[in-house]
Design a binder for these strands. Structure first.
Lengths: 96, 96
DNA sequence: AAATCTTACGGGTGACGTAACGATC
DNA sequence: GATCGTTACGTCACCCGTAAGATTT
Protein backbone atom coordinates (compact mmCIF):
# COMPACT_ATOMS: atom_id res chain seq x y z
CA UNK A 1 0.00 0.00 0.00
CA UNK A 2 1.42 3.35 -1.02
CA UNK A 3 0.30 6.94 -0.79
CA UNK A 4 -0.10 7.49 -4.51
CA UNK A 5 -2.64 4.67 -4.51
CA UNK A 6 -4.57 6.25 -1.65
CA UNK A 7 -4.55 9.63 -3.39
CA UNK A 8 -5.94 8.05 -6.54
CA UNK A 9 -8.55 6.14 -4.57
CA UNK A 10 -9.79 9.24 -2.74
CA UNK A 11 -10.07 11.16 -5.98
CA UNK A 12 -11.99 8.41 -7.75
CA UNK A 13 -14.26 8.06 -4.74
CA UNK A 14 -14.89 11.81 -4.65
CA UNK A 15 -15.64 12.12 -8.36
CA UNK A 16 -17.09 8.63 -8.71
CA UNK A 17 -15.25 8.59 -12.01
CA UNK A 18 -11.92 7.14 -13.11
CA UNK A 19 -11.85 9.56 -16.01
CA UNK A 20 -12.26 12.64 -13.83
CA UNK A 21 -9.73 11.40 -11.31
CA UNK A 22 -7.23 10.77 -14.07
CA UNK A 23 -7.69 14.28 -15.36
CA UNK A 24 -7.06 15.75 -11.91
CA UNK A 25 -4.04 13.54 -11.34
CA UNK A 26 -2.76 14.52 -14.76
CA UNK A 27 -2.29 10.92 -15.74
CA UNK A 28 -4.29 8.73 -18.09
CA UNK A 29 -7.30 6.58 -17.20
CA UNK A 30 -5.62 3.20 -17.59
CA UNK A 31 -3.05 4.30 -15.04
CA UNK A 32 -5.82 5.00 -12.55
CA UNK A 33 -7.45 1.67 -13.27
CA UNK A 34 -4.18 -0.08 -12.55
CA UNK A 35 -3.54 1.82 -9.33
CA UNK A 36 -6.98 0.99 -7.98
CA UNK A 37 -6.81 -2.63 -9.05
CA UNK A 38 -3.46 -3.10 -7.38
CA UNK A 39 -4.78 -1.49 -4.23
CA UNK A 40 -7.82 -3.76 -4.29
CA UNK A 41 -5.55 -6.77 -4.66
CA UNK A 42 -3.47 -5.74 -1.68
CA UNK A 43 -6.50 -5.07 0.47
CA UNK A 44 -8.20 -8.22 -0.71
CA UNK A 45 -11.35 -6.19 -1.18
CA UNK A 46 -13.17 -4.69 -4.13
CA UNK A 47 -13.57 -0.94 -3.61
CA UNK A 48 -15.72 0.08 -6.56
CA UNK A 49 -18.62 -1.30 -8.49
CA UNK A 50 -17.97 -0.53 -12.14
CA UNK A 51 -21.24 -0.19 -13.93
CA UNK A 52 -20.52 1.07 -17.42
CA UNK A 53 -21.71 4.58 -16.90
CA UNK A 54 -21.80 4.77 -13.14
CA UNK A 55 -19.01 4.04 -10.66
CA UNK A 56 -20.11 3.31 -7.11
CA UNK A 57 -18.37 2.57 -3.84
CA UNK A 58 -18.77 -0.85 -2.29
CA UNK A 59 -19.29 -1.13 1.47
CA UNK A 60 -15.61 -1.92 1.77
CA UNK A 61 -14.85 1.12 -0.34
CA UNK A 62 -16.94 3.39 1.86
CA UNK A 63 -15.24 2.06 4.91
CA UNK A 64 -11.77 2.43 3.48
CA UNK A 65 -12.47 5.92 2.19
CA UNK A 66 -12.66 7.27 5.72
CA UNK A 67 -9.20 5.97 6.53
CA UNK A 68 -7.68 6.84 3.17
CA UNK A 69 -8.90 10.41 3.33
CA UNK A 70 -7.57 10.88 6.82
CA UNK A 71 -4.19 9.36 5.97
CA UNK A 72 -3.73 11.46 2.85
CA UNK A 73 -4.79 14.59 4.67
CA UNK A 74 -2.45 13.87 7.54
CA UNK A 75 0.46 13.26 5.21
CA UNK A 76 -0.13 16.50 3.34
CA UNK A 77 -0.38 18.42 6.57
CA UNK A 78 2.73 16.89 8.05
CA UNK A 79 4.64 17.54 4.86
CA UNK A 80 3.61 21.19 4.87
CA UNK A 81 4.59 21.58 8.52
CA UNK A 82 7.97 19.98 7.95
CA UNK A 83 8.69 22.18 4.96
CA UNK A 84 7.75 25.28 6.90
CA UNK A 85 9.84 24.11 9.82
CA UNK A 86 12.79 23.47 7.53
CA UNK A 87 12.39 26.87 5.92
CA UNK A 88 12.39 28.53 9.31
CA UNK A 89 15.48 26.79 10.57
CA UNK A 90 17.66 26.39 7.53
CA UNK A 91 20.70 25.18 9.40
CA UNK A 92 19.74 21.68 10.51
CA UNK A 93 19.65 21.52 14.27
CA UNK A 94 22.20 19.19 15.65
CA UNK A 95 21.82 18.39 19.30
CA UNK A 96 24.47 15.88 20.23
CA UNK B 1 6.46 11.20 -0.02
CA UNK B 2 5.60 7.52 0.05
CA UNK B 3 4.88 4.99 2.75
CA UNK B 4 7.97 2.86 2.13
CA UNK B 5 10.05 5.93 2.88
CA UNK B 6 8.20 6.54 6.14
CA UNK B 7 8.61 2.90 7.14
CA UNK B 8 12.32 3.10 6.51
CA UNK B 9 12.59 6.35 8.41
CA UNK B 10 10.77 5.03 11.46
CA UNK B 11 12.97 1.94 11.55
CA UNK B 12 16.20 3.92 11.27
CA UNK B 13 14.96 6.30 13.95
CA UNK B 14 14.07 3.42 16.24
CA UNK B 15 17.33 1.56 15.79
CA UNK B 16 19.42 4.69 15.24
CA UNK B 17 21.18 2.61 12.64
CA UNK B 18 20.90 2.34 8.87
CA UNK B 19 22.47 -1.10 9.00
CA UNK B 20 19.95 -2.49 11.45
CA UNK B 21 17.05 -0.92 9.62
CA UNK B 22 18.25 -2.42 6.36
CA UNK B 23 18.45 -5.86 7.94
CA UNK B 24 14.90 -5.58 9.23
CA UNK B 25 13.61 -4.29 5.90
CA UNK B 26 15.45 -7.11 4.17
CA UNK B 27 17.11 -4.72 1.79
CA UNK B 28 20.68 -3.49 1.64
CA UNK B 29 22.12 -0.43 3.43
CA UNK B 30 22.61 1.73 0.33
CA UNK B 31 18.93 1.31 -0.44
CA UNK B 32 18.07 2.69 3.00
CA UNK B 33 20.47 5.58 2.55
CA UNK B 34 18.80 6.47 -0.72
CA UNK B 35 15.28 6.24 0.69
CA UNK B 36 16.13 8.55 3.56
CA UNK B 37 18.01 11.00 1.38
CA UNK B 38 15.15 11.23 -1.04
CA UNK B 39 12.73 11.78 1.82
CA UNK B 40 14.96 14.50 3.23
CA UNK B 41 15.05 16.19 -0.16
CA UNK B 42 11.29 16.16 -0.42
CA UNK B 43 10.83 17.50 3.09
CA UNK B 44 13.59 20.02 2.62
CA UNK B 45 14.94 19.02 6.01
CA UNK B 46 17.78 16.85 7.24
CA UNK B 47 16.42 14.12 9.50
CA UNK B 48 19.58 12.46 10.79
CA UNK B 49 23.02 13.49 11.91
CA UNK B 50 25.43 10.90 10.55
CA UNK B 51 28.41 10.69 12.84
CA UNK B 52 30.50 7.74 11.81
CA UNK B 53 29.57 5.45 14.62
CA UNK B 54 26.49 7.17 15.93
CA UNK B 55 23.35 8.13 14.07
CA UNK B 56 21.21 10.77 15.74
CA UNK B 57 17.92 12.46 15.03
CA UNK B 58 17.89 16.17 14.24
CA UNK B 59 15.19 18.34 15.76
CA UNK B 60 13.35 18.11 12.45
CA UNK B 61 13.76 14.35 12.58
CA UNK B 62 12.33 14.13 16.08
CA UNK B 63 9.42 16.22 15.03
CA UNK B 64 8.73 14.24 11.91
CA UNK B 65 9.09 10.94 13.70
CA UNK B 66 5.91 11.55 15.64
CA UNK B 67 3.92 12.02 12.46
CA UNK B 68 5.62 9.26 10.54
CA UNK B 69 5.06 6.73 13.28
CA UNK B 70 1.41 7.64 13.54
CA UNK B 71 0.87 7.50 9.79
CA UNK B 72 2.57 4.13 9.39
CA UNK B 73 0.69 2.71 12.33
CA UNK B 74 -2.58 4.01 11.03
CA UNK B 75 -1.94 2.52 7.60
CA UNK B 76 -1.05 -0.87 9.02
CA UNK B 77 -4.14 -0.86 11.18
CA UNK B 78 -6.44 0.20 8.39
CA UNK B 79 -4.94 -2.42 6.12
CA UNK B 80 -5.49 -5.14 8.70
CA UNK B 81 -9.06 -4.03 9.27
CA UNK B 82 -9.81 -4.00 5.58
CA UNK B 83 -8.36 -7.45 5.07
CA UNK B 84 -10.37 -8.82 7.95
CA UNK B 85 -13.44 -7.08 6.62
CA UNK B 86 -12.84 -8.53 3.18
CA UNK B 87 -12.30 -12.00 4.61
CA UNK B 88 -15.57 -11.74 6.50
CA UNK B 89 -17.62 -10.65 3.55
CA UNK B 90 -16.04 -12.39 0.59
CA UNK B 91 -18.72 -11.44 -1.88
CA UNK B 92 -18.19 -7.73 -2.42
CA UNK B 93 -21.17 -5.83 -1.16
CA UNK B 94 -22.91 -4.00 -3.87
CA UNK B 95 -25.53 -1.56 -2.72
CA UNK B 96 -26.86 0.25 -5.71
C1' DA C 1 -22.48 5.65 -31.76
C1' DA C 2 -20.62 7.71 -27.50
C1' DA C 3 -18.67 7.19 -23.14
C1' DT C 4 -16.34 4.49 -19.64
C1' DC C 5 -13.41 1.05 -17.69
C1' DT C 6 -10.13 -2.79 -18.85
C1' DT C 7 -6.32 -5.40 -21.09
C1' DA C 8 -2.16 -5.72 -24.09
C1' DC C 9 2.07 -3.89 -25.40
C1' DG C 10 6.38 -1.15 -25.84
C1' DG C 11 9.40 2.19 -23.66
C1' DG C 12 11.48 5.01 -20.03
C1' DT C 13 12.31 6.06 -15.30
C1' DG C 14 13.30 4.64 -10.86
C1' DA C 15 14.95 1.29 -7.22
C1' DC C 16 17.69 -2.40 -6.08
C1' DG C 17 22.18 -4.97 -5.28
C1' DT C 18 27.22 -5.20 -5.84
C1' DA C 19 31.33 -2.92 -5.45
C1' DA C 20 34.37 0.71 -4.27
C1' DC C 21 35.17 4.89 -1.32
C1' DG C 22 35.55 7.99 2.90
C1' DA C 23 35.39 8.69 7.59
C1' DT C 24 35.44 7.49 12.42
C1' DC C 25 36.79 4.72 16.39
C1' DG D 1 41.66 -2.45 10.62
C1' DA D 2 36.80 -2.75 11.54
C1' DT D 3 32.44 -0.71 11.15
C1' DC D 4 29.23 2.39 9.22
C1' DG D 5 27.24 5.47 5.84
C1' DT D 6 27.72 7.25 0.95
C1' DT D 7 28.55 7.24 -4.07
C1' DA D 8 29.03 4.88 -8.68
C1' DC D 9 27.39 1.65 -11.76
C1' DG D 10 24.82 -1.93 -14.23
C1' DT D 11 20.50 -4.41 -14.21
C1' DC D 12 15.83 -5.31 -13.53
C1' DA D 13 11.18 -4.25 -12.39
C1' DC D 14 7.53 -1.18 -12.14
C1' DC D 15 4.64 2.40 -13.98
C1' DC D 16 3.23 5.19 -17.59
C1' DG D 17 1.12 6.28 -22.21
C1' DT D 18 -0.82 4.57 -26.61
C1' DA D 19 -3.83 1.55 -28.73
C1' DA D 20 -7.37 -1.82 -29.04
C1' DG D 21 -11.34 -4.32 -26.72
C1' DA D 22 -15.66 -4.97 -23.97
C1' DT D 23 -19.85 -3.17 -22.06
C1' DT D 24 -23.59 -0.17 -21.25
C1' DT D 25 -26.80 3.66 -22.59
Amino acid sequence: MELHQLRAFVLVADKLSFTEAARELKIVQPAVTRKIHKLEDELGAVLFIRRSNRTLLTEAGKRFLLDARRIVHYCDESLAVMRAFARGEQGCNAEL
